[in-house]
Design a protein around this nucleic acid. Structure first.
Lengths: 126, 126
DNA sequence: TGCGCATATGCAGGCGGGTCGATGGTGTTG
DNA sequence: CAACACCATCGACCCGCCTGCATATGCGCA
């Protein structure tokens, strides 16, 4: 579960588009699925949303447990998964651990999913 | 698990951006997570990729089992999940069931994930 | 130095998901 | 009409994940 941290970087450069061109490689599919798995959870989506909309774009665990309605260990667990996936970065200041979005991370996923402008691949299919 | 079929449509129109503006709603998070769950699997990503890159942009189950290395029931299972998520559409012609991508589906997901150009939501963060 | 708060980790229970073999339904072919 | 091919569904197994409780670690403060 730690390899996903590098997954985004590795897939970004060679401009791998799962939904364009030739079939995606098996290992690339596993890497992309790993990152998507980190996203595919209601609690984690809400965490990302909460952190993004926080005053300074950052939030500590104590600010997130209440809005989510989940226990503190569970919130830490989700934050860990998001961080290992490369979607969040953690900064410890004093007793608090502040999390903020990695700006390019989600944009990279969105790009990977976006077909490169459908360049008349097949000549107007119907 | 069938509600995800409508999830995309419902989230598209109100221009819900999980990663911009105010925190995402709980039910919206569940819907988006449902669609992402359908994507977050190596076999299903490869299925989408294989179908997209097939000669006519469509493929039947018998063409997909071999490249995936999975049993026919398993492939049908994954195709079902993708179809219910609104990512694939199924057309039965004779004995064969042809699957093809729903063009706007993945693009919609990508748009939902893409932050809308960071429109100075909070006055220059930091 | 000792106490308290914020966070992380371990552990366990319960549920959902991926996979396959077997089976049934349906359309094609000889 | 009979045999066959393609596909969906069912039942079952196993693994991983989400969650909470209990506990450990770390930092600041009196």
């Amino acid at each position: 579960m730690d390899y996903v941290g590098t997954a985004l970087a590795e897939m970004t450069m060679p401009q791998i588009s799962p939904l364009a061109g030739e079939p995606i490689d098996r290992s690339d599919a596993e890497r992309l699925a790993g990152v998507l798995k980190a996203l595919a959870d209601p609690a984690r989506l809400r965490l990302l949303s909460l952190i993004q909309s926080a005053p300074e774009g950052e939030a500590c665990v104590c600010d997130l447990t209440a809005p989510l309605g989940l226990s503190q260990p569970t919130v830490s667990h989700h934050l860990r998964i998001l961080t290992e996936a490369g979607l969040l970065e953690r900064e410890k200041r004093g007793v608090w651990a502040y999390y903020r979005l990695v700006p390019s991370a989600i944009a990279t996923i969105a790009e990977l999913l976006t077909p490169p402008r459908k360049r008349a691949t097949k000549k107007a299919a119907r």
